[in-house]
Design a binder for these strands. Structure first.
Length: 507
RNA sequence: GGCUCCGUAGCUCAAUGGCAGAGCAGUUGACUCUUAAUCAAUUGGUUGGAGGUUCGAGUCCUCCCGGAGUCACCA
């Protein structure tokens, strides 16, 4: 849709034209910044503290004009850069009539980027400011940002007047959201720290960070429908990966003791407060470890990341206090389901009998669902109750095609999922490394796929070939990074920790 | 995909079925220590879109578009 300027935008375009006619560069290529806003104030206060006349602190600062207050032949502006805000005091005496006219006539105005050179000083009201001698336009803003005024109280608390809160527009125009909402910028700083802390932790544990294909000829490693695409030159159908699992485990065959990847997964499923079609996942695989080792690592990792991001292991999420410090509760799936639903699924080992008791207790049980899916459905009832971090352990084999069997129990595998704040955060198992067993699982999946289960994975012959070379016993693990970011930034929806969440086409 | 709610000026919001309004921003003017600056005046609208009911629709009805919540499926 072509752009139609609004009235305000037409005003600004006229100003732009006037500036250009006057020979003033509206988008110059070069800047000469010497200080960020915060550095300028710090340098000034350091000299003040020395008790010297602080007039000598020369600075050139740059930023976006966020507040304009013209008082006749002098003006006060606040400009904002990545480090914060600083006040400019612009006097006609100091900058000259020509430059001052740009200020007074608002040819340079709110939202424009400017460069200001001058000397640090303190106003009568006590605010460290730049007394400006040189003022230069750096970039003209044609469209105005939403106007938000701030009042800073004596104690430093900031009250904001006016807001930009329309969620649809905030997501579609995240740049505008970020530009005016500093708290949103902070969320994404914390998200970045979350990712970097995960990486730091795994590096320190001796894992090797790797990158594996996103475009895959065969998808697998999770129960989900894929996006499909096509390579034109090779005339090859490809899938966007739904997990990293099968490629990462190939690398253990290749004699790395531990590998991990942080990256994007794509699942062609519904969108919700905790689901986006593309999302960030971290997976690791560790040779000579089992799922108990992985549980221990999980607790330490999440506690470490929380510490790095929030400064502690106790967090508040949507009003609930959550303690992430190890050890976490470890709960057998059977016991959890029994306690929450009153159903002991092990006493109902086939689908019809389990479905019957579920319906009797008032739970939905589709008649075509396999036994494992029914158990998974019951786990869904448990999920919302798991506010404090909890490992749910030992899953039915039927819904865990890459996990190793529990010794002495052919119906269950060594698998756990962990939950925090009622959300599934991740999934892990003692990895299946017996090629014959793995092949049998693939064939079972092929049968359910033929029976209409679109989430069953196709048989990956190359993965089996890798496993036949010998795969060390290993523990593997995956976690939703977006969900952890939600937790650590106290955001209710995944869209608020995604810079550009998926949206429908605009009309 | 089902159900519920929402969509009015650049932003945030008003308007019993009866003249579409306010604050901020914008525009014009005053002001050389303001800081949500202040004061005076003022511009700005296809009420998401298309139909319908009605003497009259922002408001009621139908469909469409977009968003939010929720359920289903999934991480």
């Amino acid at each position: 849709m072509p752009w139609e300027p609004t009235n305000v935008e037409r005003d600004r375009l006229e100003k732009l034209a006037r500036l250009q006619e006057a020979g003033i560069a509206c988008y110059p290529p070069r800047v000469e910044r010497t200080h960020t806003s915060a550095q300028a104030v710090a340098a000034f206060e350091a000299v003040e503290a020395d008790g010297e006349a602080a007039e000598g602190v020369q600075v050139v600062v740059c930023g976006r004009v966020r507040r304009v207050n013209i008082k006749g032949r002098m003006a006060f502006w606040h400009i904002e850069d990545g480090a914060g805000r600083i006040q400019l005091m612009i006097r006609e005496d100091n900058v000259g009539e020509e430059t001052y006219a740009l200020v007074k006539e608002k040819l340079i105005e709110l939202d424009d980027f400017v460069q200001a050179g001058g000397v640090m000083m303190r106003t009568h009201a006590g605010e460290a400011s730049v007394q400006v001698f040189e003022l230069k336009l750096l970039a003209k803003a044609v469209s105005p940002l939403p106007v938000i005024k701030e009042k800073v109280e004596e104690d430093g608390t900031v009250t904001r007047f006016g807001e930009f809160s329309d969620v649809e527009m905030r997501y579609r125009q995240r740049y505008a959201d970020l530009a005016v909402n500093p708290d949103v910028r902070e969320v994404f700083r914390k998200r970045a720290r979350t990712v970097s802390a995960i990486r730091q932790f795994l590096d320190d544990e001796g894992f090797l960070e790797v990158e594996t294909p996103i475009l895959q000829p065969i998808y697998g490693g999770a129960a989900a429908r894929p996006f499909t695409t096509h390579h034109n030159q090779l005339d090859q159908d490809l899938y966007l990966r739904i997990s990293f699992e099968l490629y990462l485990k190939r690398l253990l065959v290749g004699m790395y003791d531990g590998v991990y990847e942080i990256g994007r997964d794509f699942r062609n499923e519904g969108v919700s407060f905790k689901h986006n079609p593309e999302f960030t996942q971290v997976e690791f695989y560790k040779a000579y470890a089992d799922y108990v080792d992985v549980m221990n690592l999980t607790e330490r990792l999440v506690a470490y990341v929380a510490e790095q991001v929030t400064g502690g292991t106790t967090i508040t999420f949507q009003g609930q206090q959550i303690n992430l410090a190890p050890p976490w509760k470890r709960w057998l799936m059977r016991d959890a389901i029994l306690e929450v639903t009153g159903i002991d699924y092990r006493e109902h080992q086939d689908a019809p009998s389990l479905a019957a008791v579920m319906r009797q207790k008032g739970y939905a049980a589709p008649s075509d669902a396999a036994w494992g899916k029914l158990v998974d459905g019951l786990l869904g009832e448990v999920e919302a109750t798991l506010i404090q971090p909890t490992f749910i352990m030992d899953y039915p084999r039927d819904i865990s095609p890459f996990a190793k069997m529990k010794p002495g129990d052919p119906t269950h595998v060594e698998r756990f999922e962990f939950f925090i704040a009622g959300m599934e955060m991740g999934n892990a198992f003692t990895e299946l490394n017996d090629p014959a067993d793995q092949e049998a699982r693939f064939l079972e999946m092929a049968r359910s796929h033929a029976a209409g289960d679109e989430e069953a994975n196709p048989l990956d012959e190359d993965y089996l070939r890798a496993m036949r070379y010998g795969m060390p016993p290993c523990g593997g693990w995956g976690m939703g990074v977006d969900r952890l970011a939600m937790l650590l930034t106290d955001q209710r929806t995944i869209r608020d920790v995604l810079l550009f969440p998926h949206m429908r086409d605009q009309a």
